[in-house]
Write a protein that binds this DNA or RNA. Sequence first.
DNA 1: CTGTTAGCGCCTTCAT
DNA 2: ATGAAGGCGCTAACAG
Lengths: 349, 349
Amino acid sequence: MAVTIQQVARAARVSPSTVSNVLNGRDSRMLPATKLRVEQTIAQLGYRPNRAARQLRTGRVPLIGLVVPSVANPFWGRFAHLVESVAMRSGFRVLLGNSDRDPARETEYLEELWADGITSVLLCSSLPSIAHVQPYLRRGMTIVAFDRTSQLGDPVLVNVSVDNSLGAQLATHHLLEQGHRRLAFVSGRLSSVNRRERLDGFLRTLDRAGVDVDPALVYRDAADRAADRAGDLDAAELGRVAARELLARPAAPTAIVAINDLFAIGVCAGVRDAGLQVGRDVSVVGFDDITLADLTSPALTTVRQPLPEMAEATVQLLVGDAPARAGQSLLMRPELVVRASTGPPPRAV
Amino acid sequence: MAVTIQQVARAARVSPSTVSNVLNGRDSRMLPATKLRVEQTIAQLGYRPNRAARQLRTGRVPLIGLVVPSVANPFWGRFAHLVESVAMRSGFRVLLGNSDRDPARETEYLEELWADGITSVLLCSSLPSIAHVQPYLRRGMTIVAFDRTSQLGDPVLVNVSVDNSLGAQLATHHLLEQGHRRLAFVSGRLSSVNRRERLDGFLRTLDRAGVDVDPALVYRDAADRAADRAGDLDAAELGRVAARELLARPAAPTAIVAINDLFAIGVCAGVRDAGLQVGRDVSVVGFDDITLADLTSPALTTVRQPLPEMAEATVQLLVGDAPARAGQSLLMRPELVVRASTGPPPRAV
DNA sequence: CTGTTAGCGCCTTCAT
DNA sequence: ATGAAGGCGCTAACAG
């Protein structure tokens, strides 16, 4: 059916190996004239090397596995888009997997990817433990963990993440500067290391500023719902509920730091439910700077992750010319983006 | 490195072909005892057949190509998630491609997928013409076009789409029932068939109701920006600009039908920019029912595409047991979801 | 500088 | 009921 290297060789009146040499840039092994003739024949016949045969022979395949919690989440959707573009430029295609934050599914994916001969995997997992990837590292898989800083006891791999603690510090500091003293923090379960880091940045900043933290204002969805794993889509709903509960308290907060933009959008809705106005009565800060953050109204003040740069760096680390050394860590710098949701300085409290 | 069929055969003291027969369910060709022994050996050695070798031999590979405009768009992100889940259940993995609505990139993808031996492609393209896929169909690729109804002159393939015209009719009808008489329609360039169908449904409904259409209220981003192709992310921004312009007109609309939810979210922002309130002064209807539609405030009335059912059906058509016949068409029924953005019936105009 | 050769791991007739 | 053998398309020694 498809054109083979043999046919090209015959048409160009050379041997298959010469065609192969042309294909693989071993220019020194043939006359320029021969090379030209082969190239023309290839173009003329519309020949494309068979990937399966190539993989069988070389053991390599230009594919990377991308495992994200859920591409339905706008943050991961954008990341997947960026990764795909960068990978494409390096000649790699992307195999997509959604883990729904389930370690069993992550393992399952790694197993399949390994069986498919794919050795480069970009794993977006923020699970507390990633011990389950250890066997694959041992077998020689290259894994870059994205959005998860290296933890004590982790298997040795490459990490790329934003500095979550710093990000939360920027957000909190901004609110303090605006004069807020009763700050709340809203997240779902602190089921991932980056969430803990963000909370840590929040607490640390308040502590350094000598501002008391009311434990009742740290909302972590204590309900601990079973379905939280797939929670990428209910994040906003959780935020909404949290905001309502917090604002109903006797000593309600005047500012709320949300664990991410989806939560923040929900928080904004909850603030309105409470009959208050975001950016005037209550300030809200998100995290990530997803595309929608500046389309809500009021637009969301948030901590931006430099996603394009992160995607670029991550893919380079994975399949670039200077491959990453295991154990290497890349911590990107977040940036505060001030928008209307933190409004002008609030009235005195 | 990895375990091969030979090693399994040796360990189970049978020939490779017997192992292969076990693998491929040709049970009748061996004693149950033999089968059991082989299966145990496979489990014990952790053997997984080499995909490349298999593909080389059979010419098949359990991969489907998924080409979407952009997974960064929440609608396509969710669709990609659904497709991946359904495909997984059928034993297929998903190769992701973002076309950014560029026919050249679509072609490039098809070319690569073909060279990779992938014969099942789910193409999410709403380009006016998909003549560029013809060569691949001819070569034997199975292509299902999603989100694009069959057009005159199209190559013969399988189509899956929501009934866009009906959807727009539902939306428009709802607004008429609410008493609106000055309705506007907001879209970007009418660069896709589904957008034209939606406009058509809008116009037809007004026409049947005997309501005049002010051509000035049909906003199609006449600016025709060059960058519109990648417009998945500026959709909301365009909607915002459109709403502002429309509401600044002498005979401003009291209701706005947006081409999709992203536009609608922008339209809502534009309404607020104009000092008006969505759901009270101006009603807004979207299309798609993306996850964010009920998190905005007010929540968005919209036309729901039954995405889970559509994803299921599409993947089944592509790789299911009863493969689709080219030329087949599946038109799914949309459903109006009424939320606060169309508020209570408006004041008389 | 170019061609010959020997597999990569698997499936699938065809024998036994 | 099981095994032997050939070849899918390609690359990389190794000859010439």
